[in-house]
């Protein structure tokens, strides 16, 4: 009899404990926030974790690629999403109607050129585009100094460049060049393809390994990526182009009809806060968007070109078309 009864008692006692603990730690709606992010875990986790510690808000993280996340928000599948964190500002520009404007409390402290005029999105960090080369194969004085030199005969087929269709950065580079040389994408793309000599990488992650291994002598990539690999011990060198470059900010924005929009605003304030910005600079190799965060000595000053994000967004379809055309004709 005791054997029969005991399990019942024990069970209920344990259930009682579970209930108590669950109740204590259950999170009310007003303490929740759902973040869709396309950042890597090493970036979003410390930031979000610190956000939780600082505000007591529990963050539900959904991570994935930028276009995937945008698609989910657009299709309504991501109706639980409060905030989109990560992805170039041009993505946000292209999908303006998905987001809800918010002006961060410390907007005065941010570089004006990175701000969305309508406050639709808030910049997190800036990521300048740089050249890299393999110092074992290319002498420092021979390395390309500016965008024009990339089209020299000696770099033909030696430039590590990712497929525009998979890499957003690649399109940004093309867009930058069209604005710099004042050419239409339809003109520039065949020239560029000619210079690449058909050597197109499948992903932007392959740019640095290709240069390091010597398959390509130079490459175009983000300063953040180059610095990250250099910190890991990759033997590559970095050049800031003479004409200047662009540093597209990666952004963050509140989604329309966000269930926890108040907490989303707090999150935006948090990511541009001094401590977060400083942390990002020191740990993520990303440049701060704050004026009061001093660059540490391993960052060089960078000359920024005027870049029309809206024009870049509008030309994207035509550029893709042209890119696909030259790729197809080559095969």
């Amino acid at each position: 009899m005791a054997v029969l009864l005991l399990p019942g008692c024990g069970k209920s006692q344990r259930e009682e404990e579970i209930r108590a603990v669950s109740q204590k730690y259950s999170v009310p709606e007003e303490k929740q926030l759902t973040v869709y992010t396309s950042h890597k875990e090493e970036v979003y986790l410390p930031v979000i974790s610190e956000f939780e510690n600082a505000t007591g808000i529990w963050v539900n993280i959904v991570a994935g690629g930028t276009s995937e996340m945008f698609d989910r928000i657009e299709s309504g599948e991501g109706s639980d999403c409060d905030i989109m964190f990560g992805g170039g500002a041009e993505y946000y520009e292209a999908k303006k109607d998905l987001f809800y404007p918010y002006r961060v409390t410390e907007s005065e402290q941010l570089f004006g050129e990175y701000l969305s005029p309508e406050d639709l999105w808030t910049p997190f960090t800036e990521l300048p585009i740089v050249f890299i080369y393999n110092p074992k194969l290319v002498a420092k004085r021979d390395a390309p100094r500016n965008w024009k030199e990339l089209f020299d005969e000696r770099w033909k087929g030696q430039i590590a460049f990712a497929d525009m269709e998979v890499s957003g950065t690649s399109y940004t580079i093309v867009s930058l060049m069209t604005q710099l040389f004042n050419e239409a994408p339809e003109e520039l793309i065949p020239e560029l393809y000619e210079q690449l000599d058909g050597n197109v990488l499948d992903s932007s992650g392959l740019v640095i390994p290709n240069v390091e291994s010597g398959r390509c002598m130079v490459g175009i990539t983000l300063e953040e990526t180059a610095k990250k690999y250099m910190a890991k011990g990759y033997d590559i060198a970095m050049i800031y182009p003479e004409e200047g470059t662009i540093a597209l900010p990666d952004a963050c924005a509140i989604v329309k009809n966000a269930p926890h929009s108040f907490n989303a605003g707090k999150f935006l304030d948090f990511i541009v806060a001094y401590d977060t910005q400083r942390y990002a600079m020191e740990h993520f190799h990303r440049r701060s968007v704050r004026t009061d965060v001093e660059l540490s000595q391993d960052y060089e000053e960078v000359k920024l070109l005027d870049f029309d994000i809206k024009k870049s967004a509008s030309e994207e379809a035509a550029a893709m078309e042209a890119w696909r055309a030259v790729r197809a004709s080559d095969k």
């Binding site: 579970i18 209930r19 603990v21 669950s22 730690y25 259950s26 999170v27 009310p28 929740q32 529990w58 539900n60």
Partner: peptide
């Protein structure tokens, strides 16, 4: 467990 707590259910 986190998801359960966020949706106010028993943690297990």
């Amino acid at each position: 467990v986190r998801e359960n707590l966020l949706s106010s259910e028993a943690y297990n």
